[in-house]
Write a protein that binds this DNA or RNA. Sequence first.
RNA 1: GGGCGUAUAGCUCAGUGGUAGAGCACUAUGUUGACAUCGUAGGGGUCGCAAGUUCAAUCCUUGCUACGCCCA
Length: 946
Amino acid sequence: MNEHNAQQNSGELAKTFEPAGIEAKWYAHWESNGLFRPERPDAQPYTIVNPPPNVTGSLHIGHALDNTLQDVVIRYERLRGKDALWVVGTDHAGIATQMVVERQMEAKGDKRSNYTRDEFIGKVWEWKHESGGTITGQLRRLGCSMDWSREQFTMDPHFTKAVVKVFVDLHKQGLIYRDKRLVNWDPKLKTAISDLEVETRETQGGFWHFKYPLADGVTRDDGLDYIEVATTRPETMLADMCVAVHPEDSRYASVIGKDILQPLTGRRFKVVADEHADPELGSGAVKITPGHDFNDFEVGKRAGIKAADMLNMFDAEAKVVQTADGLVPAEFIGMDRFDARKLVVERMKEAGFLIPHVTTDKEGNEVSADFEPRTIQTPFGDRGGVVIEPWLTDQWYVDAETLAQPAIAAVKSGEIEIVPKTWEKTFFNWMENIQPWCVSRQLWWGHRIPAWYGSDGQCYVAETEEEAQAKAGASVTLSRDEDVLDTWFSSALWPFATLGWPEDHPPQHGEGDHAQHGGGGSPHAQPFGDNPLHHPAGGPPPRSGEDRSLLAKHYPNDLLISGFDILFFWDARMAMQGLHFMKEVPWKKLYLHGLVRAADGAKMSKSKGNVVDPLLLIDKYGADALRFFMCAMESQGRDVKMDERRVEGYRNFATKLWNAARFCQSNGITGSTSVAAPAATSAVNKWIIGEVVETVAALDQAMADLRFDAAANTVYHFVWDQFCDWYIELVKGNFDAETRAVAGWVLDQILVMLHPFMPFVTEELWHSLGKREGELIVAAWPDPQASVDPAAKREVEWLIALVSNLRTAKNELGIAPGAKLDAYLPDPSDQTRGIIEANPAAIERLARLNGIRFAAAPAGAAMQVGAGDANIVVPLEGVIDIAAEKARLEKALAVSQKETKSLEGRLGNPSFVEKAKPEAVEKARADHAMHAAEAERLAAALARLG
RNA sequence: GGGCGUAUAGCUCAGUGGUAGAGCACUAUGUUGACAUCGUAGGGGUCGCAAGUUCAAUCCUUGCUACGCCCA
């Protein structure tokens, strides 16, 4: 603890809380003293892994939400004494990062192809080193207490090792395979992308109708010598391989199996029967381009066309190339896909094969157009932003369907709890319909696929080239697969690879031992059963022992917090890989939060220009205020709408706390040395201790429920409404030793409870209030070891009621709030007399009364104020007119009578008394008695006025 | 087309089977041993619409309307 003491503050607090300096000071102090992960070898572990942000990115408002929530949880658990580990790191973000570097090159008139692969990757690494610190620095500004000493990067050598092992193992198990099929091809980025990276957007397009003539003089039953087909993509005509009609469509029954002679290419192909053709839609016949359309691919396969034989008419940039049969007219070769579309239509029209789209205009005249306008669901690449082209290529696929089963089971069994629960349905819906996951990317930046090809075309998957060579034999020349893996393939390993897997792993079990998992009666379901595909990567982590590895101790993680937008991209894949390789769920709970939206509810985006920079908010209001805002607004299942005024409000809250502490400090109040509440004799002190007890309980409950809004509001209201508004006001002027001890203790409890939400201001105040053994960040969570004292609670609440009611009455009667008045209470109950006698100072200072005399008030104008059962008479001869006081009392009486009557009605209803819950009846009776008594008091008060 | 969500005070949002709360904004006001980034008091809501269940519905059920998101 040595040098920390130098940090301790002395001297008076400034009048206003100035966040900037305090934030910088404490963050550096915490980090340099290892306080984000104190040594707690025997403590219960608590683990969260941070969704790794893109290494070259910067902090946006969504990160601020996501990381605030995680930091609140990890600070809370750390304060509760756990071995709290928050794993942090960055993601190499394959496509995104490569795009950034390529854009930088373009800006300088340079391009990727001017470099070798190694040179280019070197440049990306340079950029990583240059900008990689931006976001981590910004996370520090937000106050995030991650374990930076173990900061990770998804392309660290140990991570690469994990990725390669996973790939090789899955391949051995048949869960990764190479396949030739249609992929979503991004012609701008020139890479395959997965289904998830495709965004479908509506575009305005057309629907063209063409005649496809039957060959060999064949005609349909109705005499026509052609089939009408319609398409939104005429250019694909250059690679058509059949026309499909529904098998039961009588219009075409006689021509099934006959040939079409495609007019533009002169290609001959068959009319096939396939249920994909919908007789209700258009002509009922569809042209089939198996190499360039997902549906057509399936039709083609059913028609007996092998993937390898499907015609391809595009290169990687979606420019027209010659098909294998050489039938594409020369004028199309090299043409962009959209230009080709126009030319195809033009040529077909010239040759008389275009069927015009005819409509009638307002005047009833026929209008003819080349095509029917249509809204088309068009796939776009989410990164490149251009229309995706289905393209026939060899890619690597993960058998996601197999891997998904244990993950589905884990959520079903409750091993993974998804919060809020409504997301379960979405999760199941996707997982149960999951498609093979295309994981290869035609990029340079990323984890290169550990596959080598021999000159014979044979593929060898191995962890190293040596191993591949050994498999292939020394005589074979190998070349490595050029492609890299989808970024999400590596980040899926985050919950265990960051903890040292595969090196940090228990000894391998012997052969044939693979059915053993979870030694010592693991309660977990064993979703792998005896599936021979599942060879565990090793045994389960040991369950006990002094030297449990980091992995054994912190896997499964306790909680994952992520935005719902990456539920499929990341969360689901972690669940799959974690269960497959670790035999246990990656985390016990998955908390999904929403998006942060702009003030008008719109999605924030750079293109809209409505992004709010969290760093600017931190500069303006302080990190504590921004964090508190995020928590207070985070109710489950709802997006957070940006509201800067609310951030401002929480900055004000920090200042309020600051000033309360300043006031305490100036009255000789110092930090407490005890976790347990000090002994108290006075009612106010007993009361506030009881309020702390209740607040801690409410806060713990909210945290257990992951209700960040409830947690934040609980502390907020305790600090402002209870501590500042009443406790401090009640004890002002009476700072005896007991009160100083209690006030100091309460303030400490506030600082601890508030610390997860507002770490900076609380740490600063913690040290301002006295010489401490250690920092607040590692202090002990409240454990008051006290209980609520009902008599003290009643007493203080009576005083609060008296003061509030007096203020209201004075305000309504136009009496100066500061006016000090006399008061009479002729016949107090013993309890009320006791309260009044015990609190002369509060009655004088807060109620602004010259005491309360237990005697009848002198005759004359007076206002009458209730508190509990007491009706206090305040003579106001010459100050008010009786009519005003009468009106005031009458208004109050009317309210009381209305309530009384309504409750009377309910209680008079026999079905209510018979059928309602006894508690409800009891409550109604109590409320009725209370309102009736109040009405009686007011009626008596009115009578006294005459 | 399928799925999910939302609709409560002027705004942003909590909430409960027993006729509703917060923050901000608004109105009035400035007295008390920190705080005007504050204090005090106040106004403001047939809880989207309709039907049903119930002794009782803002809350449960069904339908409708509007808006948003995801998947096809």
